[in-house]
């Protein structure tokens, strides 16, 4: 495989697209964690997740991309918006969205990034794979799930049920403990 590896530079067209989408992902994610308006953070999250779905498409994982769009962009962000609304978060800019832990957080985050990027670059500098369209389509993925991954899938459904019941018990105020 290494014999056919092209260099990192110049990037191929796919890679250029991926890098552009990646820049959007990272940039909007950065805005999510830095914006002063809590609703904007949710909206930037939509952008970030959407661009990430694009990244999945470039990586030929189309089914994952659509699930990402459906669940994350569709359901999760809406859920978050409900949460923002129900907790009466201030609409509009507020100065105190960041805690006093900010400096330490920056240090730790930068250190994490440094360690991870160093490791990843060091480990996968020469890893290369040609992209084959259709690998991650719904049909092979579905076959794989229902042939090889049935048991985890069923377990996951139980987990979902438990989460559903838990969320209901937690949110309803007329179900109390034995006190």
């Amino acid at each position: 495989m290494t014999s056919a590896v092209p260099g990192l530079w110049p990037p191929t067209a796919q890679e250029i697209v991926f890098l552009l989408l990646g820049a959007v992902v990272a940039g909007s994610a950065l805005l999510v964690v830095t914006t002063r308006q809590i609703v904007h953070a949710a909206l930037w999250l939509v952008v970030s997740f959407g661009a990430l779905a694009g990244c999945y498409l470039v990586l030929t994982a189309e089914f994952v991309a659509w699930v990402q769009v459906l669940i994350y962009v569709g359901a999760v962000v809406v859920l978050l918006l409900f949460g923002i609304m129900l907790t009466r978060a201030p609409i509009g800019p507020s100065a105190d969205l960041d805690s006093g832990n900010k400096v330490a957080a920056v240090v730790v985050a930068v250190a994490t990034a440094a360690v991870l990027v160093t490791t990843v670059v060091d480990g996968f500098r020469t890893a290369y794979t040609p992209l084959v369209p259709g690998e991650g389509a719904a049909e092979p993925l579905g076959r794989s799930i229902f042939r090889n991954w049935v048991l985890p899938f069923e377990a996951l459904s139980v987990l979902l049920l438990a989460a559903l019941i838990g969320a209901i018990v937690l949110s309803r105020t007329d179900i109390g403990g034995k006190d």
Partner: peptide, 22 residues
């Protein structure tokens, strides 16, 4: 009582251990 501070400590510790291990 600030959970974020605790988490910061935990992550910093993990990083230090990882770097140290490497």
């Amino acid at each position: 009582g600030n959970a974020q501070l605790y988490l910061t400590g935990v992550l910093a510790g993990v990083l230090i251990i990882a770097v140290g291990a490497v």
